[in-house]
Design a protein around this nucleic acid. Structure first.
Length: 276
DNA sequence: AGCTCATGGCGAG
DNA sequence: TCGCCCTGAGCTG
């Protein structure tokens, strides 16, 4: 779940439910209890996401910094709170709604200065209208690292996760192991613009759909798929299954501890393209 | 009951 | 590059 679009939706939902009024802040599980007490009952000023980070602002230069990591969840629900289920590290509640945080990598009370420090390490976020993609290009054009590693690097693109990485490289027919410096600027621009569009759609729909209408199983005259993980995707977690475009088996490889997925035919290597 | 895996990131070596 | 942290779901026995 948690790539940049998820955090942006969360910021919107939390803001709609709680911002502008006093909020009860607690830690049923206990780990955040001491910090929760410091903002409990205070007015929430706003909620902002940047990349995969979420900041809930209270008066007095206090921010709750949340990072969901791989497995974190933050559920926002209407109505009176139910008894906490499982390890609820943070609960927000007012008279209309409540929100439970579980499994997050980070849940901490920080100052605006600490927040600025974290945000300063992030690359441009495709969901940020003010973002400057040239910063990402400067990194990519001079790097020998695989483009697959660069796209996932939060200092290059903030908010892109493993699903968007696999899918955007497929959509632009770029092999994930190609060195960043072998990309042309036109390819980079196309990737950036595509991420902007895909991630905004993710914010609207709450899922990651990347398959173009002409490539849906129906349009291609194939049987409907049953191997989905929430959204319609080309290669993410489709190892060994036929590519939606050419039918070649999707490949996978672990790179820096994360699974890469690509179609060897639609995404030829730089070398084979240069030779062939 | 115990294992494995997951859309992430950190620090040690 | 590895191991570890966070939690829960979906297996296997």
């Amino acid at each position: 779940m948690p790539e940049g679009h998820t955090l942006r939706r969360l910021a919107n939902d939390l803001s709609a439910a709680f911002a502008g009024g006093p909020v009860r802040v607690s830690s049923p599980q206990g780990r955040f209890a001491a910090d929760a007490a410091l903002v409990d009952g205070q007015p929430m000023l706003g909620v902002v996401s940047s990349g995969k980070h979420l900041y809930i602002e209270f008066a007095g230069d206090r921010f709750i910094h949340v990072h969901l990591g791989l497995i974190g969840k933050f559920d926002v629900q209407d109505g009176p709170p139910a008894a906490p289920v499982g390890e609820v590290r943070l609960r927000l509640q007012n008279e209309r709604a409540y929100a439970d945080l579980r499994g997050a990598t980070a849940c901490e009370l920080v100052t605006g200065e600490q927040r600025t420090l974290v945000l300063g390490r992030l690359g441009p976020d495709p969901l940020d209208p003010e973002a400057d993609p040239a910063r990402a290009w400067e990194r990519i054009r001079r790097s020998r690292a695989p483009i697959g590693a660069l796209v996932l690097d939060q200092a290059v693109f903030a908010g892109v996760g493993n699903v968007y990485r696999a899918e955007v490289l497929f959509r632009h027919r770029i092999h994930p192991l190609r060195p960043g410096r072998t990309l042309r600027v036109g390819q980079f621009r196309a990737i950036w613009e595509d991420l902007v569009e895909l991630m905004h759609e993710g914010v609207r729909t709450g899922r990651i759909d990347t398959v173009r209408p002409e490539h849906t199983p129906e349009a291609m005259g194939r049987p409907p798929r049953e191997d989905q993980h929430g959204g319609e995707v080309y290669v993410y977690r489709r190892t060994g299954q036929p590519c939606l475009v050419c039918g070649t088996r999707v490949r996978t490889q672990v790179l820096m501890g994360r699974n890469l997925f690509w179609c060897p035919r639609c995404q030829p290597t730089f070398r084979s393209r240069a030779v062939g």
